[in-house]
Nucleic acid binder design. Structure first.
Lengths: 245, 245
DNA sequence: CGCCGCGTTGAAGAAAATCAAAGCACGTGG
DNA sequence: CCACGTGCTTTGATTTTCTTCAACGCGGCG
């Protein structure tokens, strides 16, 4: 029943914040449930449900969203391999957003009830959990600015650059080719636009030589151009968080 | 040099999450700096600056915002008496947003360096800090939905209802009269609209009998009507957070 | 008084939504 | 292997929503 330490996605993720001692690793690992396969469009949870665990993403993409009264929805965030999803709801008894698997994925569940155990055993781990939610919040905050004060062109350009940078952390970007398992409708729901308008904006970018597309593969031909369009500033993604080492 | 326990705004705020023992109260209090007066338009900090403390609001209003390249800004959140502002940045070395005092106010500073002390001394306090950031995030999330997927009417109505509910916690609402120390331009920057359009939307609400206004005093004549316009659901404000008692 | 900040109003224009139809890739079953 | 359905994208036409620009009003205050 021994698991390979290197196999654990939560430990890999946590190591990127601070070096874990053997004891902390063992503690974390004992509480994580091994990666399970989830198929496209699986609902991980819905808003209002009891919030009993969070997940780390081994492979695949996940998004969280809020469903609106009128049938619309607002995508809150999109998570890529290596990310932790659902920690946001730690302090709530019920989910405040829904979560869906976007393509076939492998996730590790981490029961919430184990967190108190972690907190009382390890100050370092407690701090790291705090920092992950903080980074999550920084991204949310940037999305807020995106939604409130940017045009469709800026929104889309910003999103593409952000995702590409987040993917680079885990190597998934080769020569600026992004494999986005996202429909334009999902993109629209994330950016506060209609899917029709997302399509048109993609058109514009193509005709301006900023990107090239071929079904779910997007090549960012001119990243600097995109950053310029977006007014992109990566500070919010960077490890400007406290260094605990 | 003894301070009156009841005078402390941070203790009052924390008590609303869980009963603090005498020891926890003493610890918190010893780290808080007594309330100071701040005048209207004072900048508490700017994005990019070193993040060294947070504040609890005794009286007055504060907002956080992001300044954009093009001179515009996005107001992220508006804080009212009893709120904690700046805790969001705990995990960052530098501020990710700016903060400004909106009207003459009294604030208690709480040096960030003291937080580790708190964390290592009291598990309960550590948990409460976690919960406050979570609630903050829930509000941010609702604002995200507001910005992404709602019309000007919905945005404004939603904002009015939310603020009125948040003020009720601290008694500041009498017969649905709100004293908002906010210019329409600030409101516009919070809602992702132009100030002109905010003015027009206020007009609509007035002519529909939803509100009445008289310089900085807004009376919500028909709250249920506003809630209906906004599609308001208070779940995100409610104490659905874990009960630590 | 005269300036300044803020709210209001009108007119014109831009940005994005909506509606509707058509195209295209892909998988499934005949 | 082809026909067909389904899900997603694209395109055009039209309408709605919101912005922008500019002017004016109004109250407070030096």
């Amino acid at each position: 029943m021994r698991k390979d330490l290197n196999e654990s996605c939560i430990i890999r993720h946590f190591q990127s914040y601070a070096d874990l001692g053997a004891e902390d690793q063992r503690l974390l690992l004992s509480l994580e449930e091994g990666p399970l396969a989830y198929s496209r469009n699986t609902l991980l949870w819905r808003q209002g449900e009891v919030s009993d665990c969070f997940y780390t993403i081994s492979t695949g993409w996940v998004c969280t969203y809020r469903e609106l009264e009128d049938g619309g929805r607002q995508v809150l965030d999109i998570y890529v391999p290596g990310d932790v999803v659902g920690l946001r709801e730690f302090a709530f008894q019920t989910r405040i957003s829904s979560a869906m698997v976007l393509n076939d994925a492998r996730l590790c569940a981490f029961p919430k009830s184990h967190l108190k155990e972690v907190f009382s055993s390890s100050l370092l781990l407690c701090n790291i959990f705090f920092m992950i939610t903080a980074r999550d919040q920084a991204i949310l905050l940037e999305r807020l600015v995106n939604l409130g004060r940017r045009s469709a062109r800026e929104k889309l350009a910003h999103f593409l650059v952000e995702i590409s940078q987040r993917l680079e952390r885990t190597n998934a970007v080769v020569e600026n080719h992004l494999q986005l398992p996202l429909t334009q409708e999902l993109l629209a729901d994330a950016l506060g636009l209609s899917s029709v308008h997302v399509s048109r904006t993609f058109n514009e970018f193509r005709s301006e030589g900023l990107i090239e597309t071929a079904t779910a593969d997007i090549q960012l031909k001119d990243i600097d151009g995109l950053k310029k369009v977006a007014g992109f500033d990566a500070f919010y993604l960077e490890r400007s968080v406290n260094d605990l080492r």
